[in-house]
Design a protein around this nucleic acid. Structure first.
Length: 1064
RNA sequence: GGGCCCGUAGCUCAGCCUGGUAGAGCGCCCGGCUGAUAACCGGGAGGUCGGGGGUUCGAAUCCCCCCGGGCCCA
């Protein structure tokens, strides 16, 4: 039994309902599970690691969709390529942003309320529920866009198993001596009451602060002051020393009997700002001269902590802290509130004092200022006191960029706190060594990554919050012994009981017995930085170390892909964890993608009003269209969202549908059997255009694989589009239409079907990862029952490999040449005003090269067809020279001086005998004649020579040579043009009457004059073209159903059509 | 302030690595085609290749500086 391709030709195309159909098909038949099952049996592993999106909202960003679609095509590609693909998706679920959302929901203002009013247990359960809801919503959107991942088994960072895997790494770090606790000046959010890592300090606001110049009296000298400048008066109570630059020039200045010390470079600016006009420089000195100079603190008696600090009040050399561009060149140092200050303090052995508590209020040590909020009340009180004591030299305001909390927008402060660190700077060499082994796409990502590693700092892993992996460190309250717990098992061994949940607050209840002194050990209450979570995904997502086998089998990760913000983010945190845990890179290849921006290249934000909601997007644009459009963008460049772009892509889908519809209509009409009739079986009958398409197809397959393996999915997408739209639809189908319309079962027609079938089936396979819905639909409707393609889903098939023997460079070049020549013919027709319907006698080509000549010879039939020419001739290069007609225009400037008074006569002669003169000059360079009895010679420079072709020849120049059409017409060509006009009208009538393509008709035509004559001459042609069983050039019988009057070439023509009565 | 990326037709983008007369699609205007037809074909208009300098016989392409946008840091 013949297996005929199904037809989609009668369907009205609707991409939305197509996708609905496929979605249901996949669900009802568990297609994903079957695809996964098949992949699982493959011998080669492909470990893909999903970068877990942050589950803090229900709706996904267009960029998130793009991200997952890129992943999806890579996964689908590898499955169809015969890999055992690991496709577990993940979600990042811990962290401050989620806590802040829950705080908002519960109406919590300060951190204390979580413990006192809500209860940590309830708070945690709220976080979990919130995350669960978000994950569910996000998953359904990922499924909507056609992402085939293991959605029933995602890895979720809040799960106990995952937390336990996290503990393992902390323990590994501890075993290597990398885990330590230390003081560090870091940004602190006084509302969230936690430290923020450097990379979390990302938002700045233009804020107003006081800008004050303060007089610090030099100890033992009267009326002599160090002049310092600060915008943070609240740090003055913690002042410990003053920093100066040893190589900078300083001056002593007298003002009103007082002496001030400041940098020479700042003198003028400071005096101007303070409005001091009368000042006198009394001494110049080097910064180094100031070293050790002692001073007194103006608020000494009001601040308790100053008692301790008094002994450190002197000038210290610290070039790194001083610039000649702002301030006074003397910098007030509060090591508890400044990073540089802290480092200098470490060097000179000064204490690190911070007088601000977790909530931003001044502490006990601040004495008089205790309890005041740092940026507001404390600033105000301190400035007042300085003023009252005459220590305020000048006060003004400054508006500057000030960091705020990225979650709650509260202004941050710098504060020295005790935090837990992993000393990764010790691993710097290993990190760089391993990073260099990673393969990066594009190459510049590697440069960026290595640049970043140069600035590596130790990793602050602790956060003073709740919703995170608890730091697995227990400390003995008796002897201070510290122990890091690496697993629940270990917890139990140490005398702890497994809590119902490894999060706070349950884990905080677990007390261990100190192995040193038997005392009670309590957990350090911190949780881990959320970046810790995703960084361990490469082993934690597969259950390591609890279940070792899976990771041992899968490692290393073969491929990851995320946006370029993750170079410093996840790509780095993975590597860091990899080196800490295993001493090596955890992944081999990275692809970096861009950002999804709006039409104007700006970030998409809800607050900017340019945000495109994902659900709105897929309600307006079919999923495959969205996917294919997203994937055309060069992966590593930013994507500009464009509704218009999506609309255009939708039109391409329409063409794709039309191509398959065209093929299926005629194939099923002719009962084409793809098993019997293959490109091999009809090899001898393949026409040049068939061989060309097969060459293009196999080149596509080859380049497609190259692009996919080289991580250039956008190139693969463009190749796919180009082949189906340009090669198949715009060119090949145009060429084979006539062959396909052929009534009888010719070998040439079979060749066309076999070629088209081969191209469309293989293209569909290649396109399946990109447009899985469309591919599935066309497969089910058109291919599944035909050929040898019985698999239940197209996604269970394997990708085709290129057959290099079909690739014919020469043929493709020739086709290119012929296409260019055909364009030239069309342009020539246009100039001459000859419609394509009317054939031209001949096309004449003068090829520029041997290659062009070869192309025209090989493909002359094709060129004739496309150009609608009776014949194609190759002319020698002299042909066009010979037929050329030359004309000349006289050049007065050259003629006058030579011929003087004869000039008017000469000009007249040139005008009259323009062609003759032109021909002579073109040939021998001059023209001689007799004028008023004188023999004159007109030379080249006396005229403007112009070459023209004769009327009957229309010539176009191309890079392949000259092309011309013979425009002279005989009756036969005119008649054919008229006949084709008539045919076209009958076709319109057939279609409007609703006859199907294979129906036969009876036709009557009433016409007169040339049209009638032409119809008599071309009667057979017309009858064949319109499938007329009977064609009469006569008045139609009155009962005919379809009658219409037309005008052809200015004459009235009445055409009547009816369905022919069936025979027999 | 630093690192990296992007800037080409009205719009979206190829071309740049490896220098050799600026390309495609869409849009616009004109014409053609008509059994895939909400498709298709041809022509035309439209470009200081962000700006400036350099290397070179020759620069969109290589080098330097600047401007605008993006990401990451400070």
């Amino acid at each position: 039994m013949a297996r005929v391709p199904g037809t989609i030709g009668s369907e009205k195309y609707n991409q939305f309902s197509l996708e609905e159909w496929v979605k249901r098909f996949w669900e009802e038949n568990n297609v994903y599970l079957k695809v996964k099952e098949k992949s699982r049996r493959q011998p080669r592993k492909f470990y893909f690691l999903d970068g877990p999106p942050y589950a803090s909202a229900k709706s996904i960003h267009v960029g998130t969709a793009w991200n997952k679609v890129i992943k999806d095509i890579v996964l689908r590609y590898h499955r169809m390529k015969g890999f055992n693909v690991w496709d577990k998706p993940g979600y990042d679920t811990h962290g401050l942003p989620i806590e802040v959302k829950i705080e908002q929901k519960l109406g919590i203002k300060v951190k204390k309320e979580i413990v006192e009013k809500v209860g940590v247990d309830k708070f945690i359960m709220e976080c979990k529920r919130f995350v669960d809801e978000n994950m569910e919503a996000m998953t359904s959107q990922f499924k909507e866009i056609g992402v085939f991942m293991d959605w029933d088994n995602p890895y979720v960072t809040y799960k106990d198993e995952y937390i336990e895997s996290g503990w393992w790494l902390i323990k590994r770090a501890h075993e290597q001596g990398l885990l330590y606790q230390g003081l560090r000046v870091l940004h602190w959010c006084p509302r969230c009451e936690t430290t923020l890592a450097d990379y979390e300090v990302s938002e700045y606001r233009e804020l107003e602060d006081p800008s004050i110049y303060v007089k610090l009296p030099v100890r033992g000298r009267s009326s002599e002051y160090l002049l310092i400048w600060t915008t943070t008066p609240w740090t003055l109570p913690a002042n410990t020393f003053v920093m100066a630059h040893p190589n900078l020039d300083y001056v002593k200045v007298r003002i009103d009997g007082e002496t001030y010390i400041l940098a020479k470079a700042r003198l003028e600016a400071v005096m101007k700002e303070a409005g001091v006009k009368d000042y006198e420089v009394v001494e110049e000195l080097k910064g180094s001269d100031l070293e050790g100079l002692e001073y007194d603190h103006p608020l000494e008696d009001l601040v308790d902590a100053q008692k301790e600090l008094k002994q450190y009040h002197k000038v210290v050399m610290a070039p790194e802290a001083v610039t000649p561009y702002e301030g006074t060149g003397l910098v007030h140092a509060a090591p508890g509130h400044g990073a540089v200050d802290y480092e200098v303090a470490q060097k000179i052995g000064a204490p690190v004092v911070s007088l601000v508590d977790d909530t931003g209020r001044m502490t006990e040590g601040a004495g008089k200022y205790k309890g005041l909020y740092f940026r507001t009340d404390a600033n105000k009180a301190i400035i007042e006191d300085l003023r009252a004591r005459g220590a305020l030299f000048h006060k003004t305001k400054i508006i500057h960029r000030y960091p705020v909390c990225w979650r709650c927008k509260t202004p941050l402060l710098l504060r020295a706190t005790r935090q837990w660190f992993i000393g990764v700077t010790k691993l710097k060499d290993e990190l760089i060594r391993e990073a260099k082994k990673i393969e990066w796409r594009p190459a510049w990502a590697k440069i960026r990554f290595l640049n970043m590693l140069k600035e590596l700092r130790d990793w602050v892993i602790s956060r003073q919050r709740f919703w995170g992996i608890p730091l697995p460190v227990w400390v003995c309250s008796e002897c201070g012994y510290m122990h890091v717990v690496g697993s629940v098992e270990e917890l139990e061994e140490m005398g702890g009981e497994r809590p119902e949940n490894l999060h706070r607050p349950w884990i905080d209840e677990v007390k261990l017995k100190c192995p040193k002194c038997g005392g009670e050990m309590r957990r350090v209450p911190d949780v881990l930085d959320v970046w810790f979570d995703s960084g361990i995904a490469f082993y934690a997502s597969v259950g390591y170390p609890r279940e070792r086998e899976t990771y041992e089998r899968l490692k290393p990760v073969d491929f990851i892909v995320e946006g370029h913000d993750q170079i410093r983010g996840w790509f780095f945190s993975l590597l860091r964890s990899g080196v800490i845990g295993f001493g090596e890179k955890p992944y081999n290849r990275v692809l970096v993608h861009g950002f999804a921006l709006d039409e104007h290249g700006r970030e998409m934000h809800k607050s900017l009003g340019n945000y495109v909601d994902f659900n709105e997007l897929i309600s307006k644009v079919p999923r495959d269209v969205v996917r294919f459009w997203l994937l055309q963008t060069t992966v590593w460049e930013d994507l500009r969202f464009s509704w218009k772009g999506l609309e255009h892509m939708g039109r391409d889908f329409n063409v794709i549908w039309n191509v398959y519809s065209f093929a299926s209509t005629y194939m099923s009409l002719d009962s084409y059997d793809p098993v019997k009739v293959t490109v091999e079986s009809v090899k001898e009958s393949l026409q040049p255009e068939d061989k060309w398409l097969l060459s293009r197809l196999n080149r596509l397959i080859k380049e497609y694989h190259e692009a996919m393996q080289d991580l250039r999915p956008h190139d693969a997408a463009r190749l796919l589009r180009n082949f189906i739209i340009e090669d198949v639809s715009h060119w090949y189908i145009r060429l084979v239409r006539r062959r396909v319309w052929e009534e009888s079962d010719t070998l040439e027609k079979r060749a066309a079907y076999a070629t088209l079938y081969e191209a469309l089936w293989k293209w569909l396979l290649l396109a399946a990862p990109f447009i899985p819905n469309t591919a599935e639909y066309l497969y089910q409707k058109m291919f599944r029952e035909a050929g040898e393609h019985g698999e239940e889903s197209i996604h269970l098939h394997e990708l085709p490999e290129a057959r290099e023997e079909w690739i014919d460079d020469e043929l493709e070049e020739d086709m290119e040449v012929v296409r260019r020549l055909a364009e030239a013919v069309a342009a020539a027709r246009m100039e001459a005003g000859i419609k394509l319907r009317r054939p031209v006698r001949k096309v004449i080509v003068a090829p520029k090269t041997g290659e062009v000549e070869r192309a025209v010879k090989r493909l002359s039939g094709l060129l004739a067809q496309v150009a609608n020419a009776r014949s194609v001739e190759i002319a020698g290069s002299d042909f066009f020279e010979q037929v050329k007609v030359y004309t000349v225009e006289p050049d007065y400037g050259a003629i006058g001086p030579v011929f003087k008074r004869l000039t008017p006569k000469i000009v007249e002669l040139i005008r009259e005998k323009s062609r003759e003169v032109g021909a002579a000059i073109a040939e021998k360079g001059y023209y001689e004649a007799e004028v008023e009895g004188e023999r004159v010679r007109i030379t080249r420079e006396m005229v403007k020579l112009k070459a023209e072709y004769p009327e009957w020849l229309r010539v176009k120049e191309t890079k392949h040579g000259l092309v011309a059409i013979d425009t002279s017409l005989t009756w036969d060509e005119v008649a054919e043009g008229i006949a084709r006009d008539v045919v076209r009208r009958i076709q319109v009538m057939r279609k409007e009457a609703g006859y199907s393509i294979e129906d036969y008709v009876d036709v009557w035509i009433k016409a007169s004059g040339e049209v009638e004559k032409a119809l008599h001459d071309k009667r057979e042609y017309v009858a064949r073209e319109v499938r007329a069983r009977k064609l009469e050039i006569a008045e139609p019988p009155s009962e005919t159903e379809v009658v219409r009057e037309w005008e052809i070439d200015g004459e009235k023509v009445v055409i009547a059509v009816r369905k022919a009565p069936s025979q027999g």
